[in-house]
Simulated assay, not measured.
Amino acid sequence: MKPLARYAALHSYVELGRSLGIDPVELIREAGLDPAGVSMQDRWVPAAAIADLLERSARASGCEDFGLRLAERRRFANLGPLSLVIRDEPDARSALRIMSRHEHMYNEAVHTRVTERDGIATIRLVLDLGGPGDARQSTELAIGVLHGLLRGFLGTDWQPLEVRFAHAAPRDTGTHRRLFGPHVTFDQDFHGILAYTTDLDAPNAMSDPQLRVYAQQRFDAAPSTQTTTTVDRVRELIELLLPTGRCSAEQIARSLGVDRRTIHRHLAAEGETFSSLLDDTRAELAQHMVASRRHTQTEVAELLAFSSPGNFSRWFRKRYGCSPTQWRTAAGAGGSNIATR
């Protein structure tokens, strides 16, 4: 499976695109992405599609610094749950260590590595899109976000010793120098940021020791593996697509940048099928929706993509041994009589 990234990577993309006179919605479609999905920050899509969108946007707007302009609009929160931990780390070194170790939680294509020698810290960044393709804008977006993270810890007056890019310089380096300072170089052997090691030890003024303990406890409770399985990816997309009426193996395959047979093959290797995942996800959602009383039975049937309330009711009774009405009544009485199996 190709590396995925969260839609959060495109935070403020639509606003930036419109400010530069391009049609962001049309460009999103041309890149094979869903315009309606951009607002779903935690939805995963192929990282290569996001990279393609940024390249198309740079060409359409005539802005070679499109990725950097987007980076300027990013916030800690765009890193998702990881931001809660990073914000309260005691220093920049600790934050970088956490981010590098768990970067798969926000972008599977981004890989960072920190080395220190003779008082200089080198933060290297590699972008792996799973295949060929131009990644200039995505790389500059990632470096810009990394630089913004460091400034959040070290103060807005902080400047790196050097910011390096492996690609050639743009015609106008004004945005690069405004954002990074005077020491920006191109045609280097890697992408990255150089800083004094003492900078990484500077105390984090944002850190709250008590909140840090709480955030780490919540964070550590989540699965720590860096391998996101196909089952995890498909289950998440089923939850997102069910209410849209477009939850099919074909649509999920397109969202993951592969064909339908590839999805079935990967699921089979993990002991699952699309049908079983769809049914199990429906069951989990149905329990909560029926018990919550926020939706009528007709609305629940529509949200879970059943053809009629009657079909939903028959499926529910077969699954749980009681009707949705009986389940809701039992839930309102405290749930002691809810039948499960």
Rank of each mutant, 00 (worst) to 15 (best):
T139C: 11
E89H: 03
H147D: 12
A195N: 05
E72C: 06
G144Q: 03
G192I: 01
W158N: 15
T139G: 12
R18L: 09
V163I: 09
R18M: 06
D232H: 14
H102R: 13
G21T: 04
T225N: 14
R314L: 15
H147K: 08
S83H: 01
T230C: 13
G130H: 10
G310C: 11
A222H: 08
Q287D: 02
L10C: 03
T122M: 09
R212A: 14
R75D: 04
Q287S: 09
M99S: 11
V258D: 08
A286I: 02
P203H: 01
H11M: 01
V14T: 12
L154T: 08
A330N: 10
Q226R: 15
A169E: 09
L27K: 00
F219H: 07
G271K: 08
F153C: 05
T175L: 12
N78W: 01
P3R: 04
D259Y: 03
Q217K: 02
A291I: 05
E236D: 15
I238E: 11
A36G: 09
E26S: 03
P209E: 06
T329G: 11
E116M: 12
Y106R: 10
P3T: 10
T340F: 08
P203W: 04
W158G: 14
G335L: 00
W44I: 05
E270S: 13
N78R: 02
G119F: 00
E162A: 14
Q137H: 05
P46F: 08
I263P: 09
A283W: 00
R246C: 07
Q137V: 02
E72P: 02
G148W: 00
F180K: 12
T112E: 14
E89C: 13
V38N: 00
D91Y: 04
